[in-house]
Design a protein around this nucleic acid. Structure first.
Lengths: 212, 212
DNA sequence: CTGAGATAGTGATAAAATTAACAGGTGAGC
DNA sequence: GCTCACCTGTTAATTTTATCACTATCTCAG
């Protein structure tokens, strides 16, 4: 980004959406796209799109717009895609398995190298080609394999412990699905997916349709 | 809320978090909580907490704080909890099943009344006590059972069709897990859980730790 | 019953985010 | 090559969101 400017979280949250749109455009063989057309596709104002992208550099050209392929490549570079992130999932219940299967089919940039669980009957099994290991071996496994991202899909009672171990084991980021706000580490980014919060917001708007 | 005031989305997104904190407090037998203490627990400033809550009425008392039980009840009322929401899940793959199992165990306020899928080998089976039906029967089922919330956990190719049918079938809200921005209806709220977007944001912060 | 201390409510202020406006390149059509 | 509609980068204005600072009120100990 330009001169060490601090980029607001709001902008970062939109980048993946731009990327998705650009993938679709690439698939439909579009070569160029203007902020105005992009605006129609994804609903942000053209102004916002131009301003967002401009935080990272002038990727567009007056009178032309943005080159789809180039812009996609730029956003991938900004996000840090293009290299493989190795992940472990702590908690191999339905949600853990669903995330595992999602990641396997989603992109080569992300690879689950191991699942973990406490349950005897799960340990040793394979899911989507990934072995479920005993969570008792988590620390050792982290030491030896140094995964990049730890995913937490255990119950909220066990989530903090999983988090502590992942951080101690040196993961670079945490993706938390447990319905609790974990104590992390100031240098280790954590993304939370709080399904219940999301559902509650939905219910609010169901009951207050005038506020949509 | 006070005099038809329009509540900002930022406030609404925080309400579920307050609720979670209050549940924890209730479980630990706390009777009262001040904005200052709550601030320490969940990280928002005390000012913000007071202002957020005050949009809906003066639930607190000077010199005392907020009564945990009462405040929890108020927030539940604001969100529209306390009544049961009947849900259908379109897409019974791993993610659909994970959401189903999450909802079943999460709260009595939400009940999945049916799953749907196209796959022959899934139709007729039960998951967490819920029957998987043929998606071909979705429209008829919606007409007859009028569920409140439709959950979309199909592939992105089939998501728009599922969305259209759910809306035509009269659901009051949509919870979308497909990695696509759906065309909905202006009166029907839609909450999106875009896992890939979330993961991409995480990766950005992994690569830009100075921006956390 | 009283007064010190605590704490919510609230209007003002500041900060952040979004949208609007526009100067000035760009390139397609002629 | 000219011209004009197009479209970006960028600055300005506006809107939204968050914080601050202060006042009124309540609690609780004595």
């Amino acid at each position: 980004m330009r001169q060490n400017e601090k980029i607001s979280p709001a902008v970062i949250r939109r980048l993946p959406r731009y990327l998705r749109a650009l993938e679709d455009l690439e698939n439909s063989k579009a070569e160029r796209i203007s902020s105005g057309e992009l605006s129609k596709l994804i609903g942000y104002t053209a102004s916002q799109i131009r301003q967002d992208l401009n935080h990272f550099g002038g990727f567009g050209q007056q009178g032309y717009g943005y080159n789809v392929k180039d812009l996609k490549a730029e956003i991938e570079k900004i996000l840090g895609l293009g290299t493989q992130y190795r992940m472990v999932i702590v908690g191999s219940g339905r949600l853990g398995q669903a995330i595992n299967s999602f990641i396997s089919s989603y992109s080569d940039d992300f690879r689950v190298i191991s699942l973990f669980d406490v349950k005897e009957d799960l340990i040793g099994k394979e899911k989507s080609g990934v072995l479920i290991r005993d969570v008792a071996c988590l620390e050792e496994y982290l030491r030896e394999n140094k995964p990049d991202i730890g995913v937490i899909t255990v119950t909220k009672e066990h989530a903090q412990e999983a988090c502590d171990k992942l951080i101690a084991g040196g993961v670079r980021g945490i993706w938390n699905f447990a319905p609790i706000d974990l104590e992390g580490s100031p240098d280790i980014p954590m993304e939370n997916v709080h399904l219940s919060d999301n559902l509650h917001s939905l219910v609010y708007y169901i009951n207050h349709p005038e506020q949509i």
